[in-house]
Computed example of a mutant assay.
Amino acid sequence: MTQTNRLAKLVKATAKFPKGIRSTLWSKAFGRVVPMVGTAHIKYIEVSHSQVIVEIQNHRAIQNHIGQVHACAMALIAETATGFVTGMNVPDHCIVLIKSLKVDFKRPTKGNMKAVATLTDEQITLMQSTEKGETLVSVSVTDETGQEPIQCEMLWAWIAKSQLKK
């Protein structure tokens, strides 16, 4: 059975709204929690315990020198999607932290980008039942052609807030 934390409750509270409004509400709310996400104008398309989908438009502020989505922006959407799907599952008394990220750039991009992060049932159970742990969160980042210009590995950890050194 899936447990609910504050983030999951916030997502559930928006369920009564149409999909487009939900997406806007999530993007605004999460952008306030994580200012970098708001600055980059990342749009949340789907948010659940097992999957988070985010998009970023290829606009001037996030482009590289050849008019494509900048490498850092591509890594940002992968990190954002994997971080939020992890955050949907850890208990409220825990904090999530990225432990490592690896990004391999395979080919030039075309247009807007989308990241889809997914968790297995086993990963969800582990996150919801332990105070401390880590897991490699699966993420696929595609451009407008549907191809994956980058391949990523995102290792997320969680720990009880009381364990953090002040």
Rank of each mutant, 00 (worst) to 15 (best):
K9L: 15
L10G: 11
K12E: 10
K12L: 09
K12D: 13
A13G: 10
T14P: 00
A15D: 13
A15M: 03
F17I: 07
P18Y: 03
K19C: 02
G20Q: 11
I21C: 06
R22Q: 14
R22Y: 02
T24N: 10
W26I: 05
F30N: 04
G31A: 14
M36C: 09
V37R: 02
A40M: 15
A40F: 10
A40S: 12
H41W: 13
H41C: 11
K43N: 09
Y44H: 05
I45C: 12
E46F: 03
V47T: 06
V47L: 10
H49Q: 11
H49N: 15
Q51Y: 03
Q51A: 06
I56G: 07
R60E: 13
A61H: 12
Q63M: 10
N64V: 01
G67L: 02
Q68S: 12
V69N: 02
V69Y: 05
V69P: 01
V69W: 00
A71H: 00
A73M: 10
M74Q: 14
A75N: 05
L76S: 05
L76P: 02
A78I: 01
A78R: 01
E79S: 10
E79Y: 09
E79Q: 10
T82L: 01
T82F: 00
F84T: 03
F84M: 11
F84A: 03
F84K: 05
V85F: 10
V85N: 08
G87E: 13
M88W: 07
V90I: 11
D92W: 06
I95F: 12
L97E: 11
L97G: 04
I98K: 04
K99R: 15
S100P: 00
K102G: 15
D104I: 01
D104E: 12
K106T: 08
K106E: 10
K106I: 08
K106W: 02
T109G: 15
N112I: 02
M113T: 00
K114I: 08
A115F: 01
T118K: 15
T120I: 08
D121P: 06
D121K: 14
I124K: 00
S129Q: 07
T130F: 01
T130W: 00
E131R: 13
E131K: 14
L136A: 09
L136C: 08
V137Q: 00
S138V: 08
V139R: 15
V141F: 05
E144L: 06
Q147S: 14
Q147F: 05
E148F: 02
P149C: 02
P149I: 01
P149H: 02
I150A: 02
I150C: 02
C152E: 03
C152Y: 03
L155V: 08
L155D: 07
A157T: 15
W158F: 03
I159E: 13
I159F: 07
A160H: 10
K161D: 04
S162W: 12
Q163W: 05
